[in-house]
Nucleic acid binder design. Structure first.
Lengths: 238, 238
DNA sequence: ATATTTGTGTGCGCTAACGAACAGACTACG
DNA sequence: CGTAGTCTGTTCGTTAGCGCACACAAATAT
């Protein structure tokens, strides 16, 4: 057995690490399988592990008074869960709920912090990821305020596709509604419109994107903005 | 002349520094007067200075396509402007517009980064401030989505009061509307309701909070949540 | 004094989204 | 096979907020 970079699926953050740092990190990591609707932690909780999804999606939810809640972020193999630790605070900023089952690497908080000190490039890269998270959050805030449900739904489906690494995935209208912070009926209506335009098809949670290009053109510009931000900050290293 | 901690107004972040670190930092700082509507930087710009308001307010605005924009944060003497540098990226996350004229300390980016390395307590404190900013942004995101304009306006006025350190300040309905991301007419209506309840009075931009308690009780819970978060993270040091 | 800019108030029709309640259709399970 | 649970669709009345346009008053400039 060789300790080589594995083939996909892989976490994109870790993929960019220097190989020696990566191998060092891996010694503290274990691979875990996350299952749908599993709650990894609730807002305010102590953070026990940092997760690097390899093939799963974690929704970051913030709940506000009176049971209403809203997805404020989504983490797939492009990111990590546990950013609080980068800011010297051991308390989760949001509730983390598994939205697509699959595998992730995880590392205990204590070891994670050691790794930050061990590898400067690891720390710097994650700080830049934090910046990206910040930026996406800002974008999402404005998006929630101004854009229509149909546009936002289109964006959301594209985001799930990217992180699920597949044009087909399981997601009910109920959970989409919770992510968007709207009624389920609002999703039924918007999804019906998308299906009417032959952009997606679905049945009882089995959703398939039929026309990616079309879906992108109908989604709000936030989708593109977010992707550009990620690329610019994580790769162009401005 | 003594280099002692000055009386108020003071920046609350700096007030908590060990005295020696504070004095060291001050050697690179200069005091500046910021004037209403001055744009300190635009989203994406290189960051030249970090600002620590002592008696002024800076609005953090994000503009989205088609000229619509939204306030995503507000910085007064409880915070700082220039968090990007804490994340190893020299590009502003938002446009920064002076919302209440007044004084601030500022330090060139280069010196700021040196100070981060010079003083561990400075760096750790600012990282925690970054966490607070993150949390408030999340809260604001949900607030924008769910709360009524009147509640949000009440919260906004309380936030301005806290940072202006006065129950009277100058702010037009037009600028309140831009901050809330609603029409000016929407503010006229909501402000009329608040005035009808004798919570505030205003005329041509001269606004006065007449009943702080009443205003707090009508504002959404986000106001209290935000304040609690700040206290908990910056003081209780969880 | 007069004109212009700035800040506020109103009125009108419109629409996206809401809350609640119910109906059908597919799936899974005993 | 039937029953219970899950997922989706529809209907109806309501409402917060929108866009537009206009009116008016106070402050400022000429």
């Amino acid at each position: 057995m060789r300790f080589d970079l594995p083939a996909l699926p892989m976490n994109r953050l870790l993929a960019d690490l220097p190989k020696s740092d990566y191998l060092h990190l891996m010694q503290s990591c274990e691979s875990v399988e996350l299952v749908l609707n599993e709650v990894l932690c609730s807002a305010g909780d102590e953070v026990h592990h940092v997760y690097f999804p390899t093939k799963c999606i974690i929704s970051l939810m913030r709940s506000i008074e009176s049971g209403r809640d809203l997805e404020v972020g989504m983490v797939g193999n492009e990111g990590m869960l546990g950013c609080s630790l980068l800011m010297n605070v051991n308390a989760a900023l949001f509730s983390s709920v598994v939205q697509q089952s699959g595998s992730a690497l995880r590392i205990p908080s204590k070891n994670f912090i050691q790794e930050l000190h061990y590898s400067a490039s690891f720390q710097q890269m994650l700080q830049r990821y934090l910046y990206v998270s910040f930026s996406l959050l800002v974008q999402n805030s404005a998006c929630n305020r101004f854009h229509l449900v149909e546009e936002r739904l289109a964006r959301l489906l594209l985001m799930i596709r990217d992180r699920a690494q597949s044009v087909s995935f399981f997601v009910t209208q109920e959970s989409l509604a919770r992510m968007l912070g709207v009624r389920r009926v609002g999703v039924t209506k918007a999804a019906g419109l998308l299906q009417g335009k032959r952009l997606v098809s679905y049945s009882r949670g089995n959703l398939k994107i039929e026309d990616s290009i079309g879906l992108e053109s109908i989604s709000c510009s936030c989708y593109k903005t977010d992707n550009d931000t990620y690329k610019k900050i994580m790769h162009n290293k401005i």
